[in-house]
């Protein structure tokens, strides 16, 4: 597998928009061609070479291209946007829209990321060994199609609005999570291994949320159903199943109403 290594050489004075940093764009390009790719700082057009040294070359296709960023890119947006295959590894912190609208491949950030990661994602893996910001795996503004497939794993904490309008795929948050989890959710799975604050599953139509820790304030539209012994993401435990949001519309399957499911671990 071909490998491209980007090493940051300077911190952008404002922010660098670098949606060209993906295995898809790098595929078929040598180091010089990659360094010549455009990025944007405000209204000015720059090149990736202005901000990174580039070593190696892309493979023939995205699938056989690995991109490694060695260093802090916490002022760089759109890393891995729309990536469809291959691998992207960030050894450092990154800014907003990491893996936004990604459709495949694997994106790993060994550090913290900002908001809007995995926005509108339809496939692939997004792994964050650190903390994530708000709107993780959510929908773009106005869209009713949030995360639709793939998997997001965050080892640390996540912000608010995780999985808004989620319709498929899985989000796993190892730590705690801020308010509004799975709002308007209509499919998929969210697993929170730490604590949640409030507004978990508000306006939820379908889908499943697991919370291992506490929820400070439950939504009034969730009703206790039963206890269940389950294996969730490799962890065994006893869970209390709540269904809701009773204030929201719900589809029927074979004459039976389908609710959103919220499992709380004992």
């Amino acid at each position: 597998m071909a490998k491209v290594i980007l090493t940051p050489t300077q911190t952008p004075t404002l922010f660098l928009e670098a949606e060209n940093i993906t295995p898809d764009v790098f595929a078929g390009k040598n180091a010089a061609e990659i360094a010549a790719l455009h990025g944007f700082v405000g209204k000015t057009t720059v090149t990736l070479g202005d901000y990174f040294t580039v070593e190696g070359a892309g493979g023939q296709t995205a699938a056989d291209t690995t991109v490694v960023i060695n260093g802090d890119v916490s002022r760089v947006k759109y890393i891995g946007m729309k990536m469809s295959a291959g691998e992207l590894i960030v050894n450092g912190n990154a800014d907003m829209y990491v893996g936004g609208w990604m459709t495949g491949g694997r994106l790993t950030v060994n550090g913290d990321i900002e908001a809007f990661a995995g926005l509108g994602m339809t496939g692939g893996e997004l792994i964050v060994n650190g903390n994530a910001g708000n709107y993780l795996g959510a929908a773009y503004r106005g869209d009713w199609r949030g995360m639709q497939g793939g998997e997001i794993r965050v080892s640390g904490n996540a912000g608010s609005d995780v999985g808004t309008f989620m319709r498929g795929g899985t989000i796993v948050v190892g730590g705690n999570i801020d308010v509004h989890v799975g709002t308007h959710m209509e499919g998929g799975t969210i697993i929170v291994k730490g604590d949640a604050k409030s507004r978990v599953g508000g306006q939820m139509v379908k889908g499943t949320i697991y919370v291992y820790g506490d929820i400070d304030v439950m939504m009034p539209g969730f009703q206790y159903r039963n206890d269940a012994d389950l294996e969730v993401d490799g962890d065994n435990g006893r869970f209390a199943l709540y269904e809701g949001d009773m204030g929201e519309r719900h589809p029927k399957r074979k004459g039976e109403v389908i609710y959103g499911q919220l499992y709380m671990k004992y």
């Binding site: 409030s198 507004r199 508000g202 306006q203 304030v217 939504m219 009034p220 539209g221 949001d245 009773m246 204030g247 929201e248």
Partner: peptide
Amino acid sequence: YELLSAIRV
């Protein structure tokens, strides 16, 4: 949010 949700319920 909780109260509005409760009204919907």
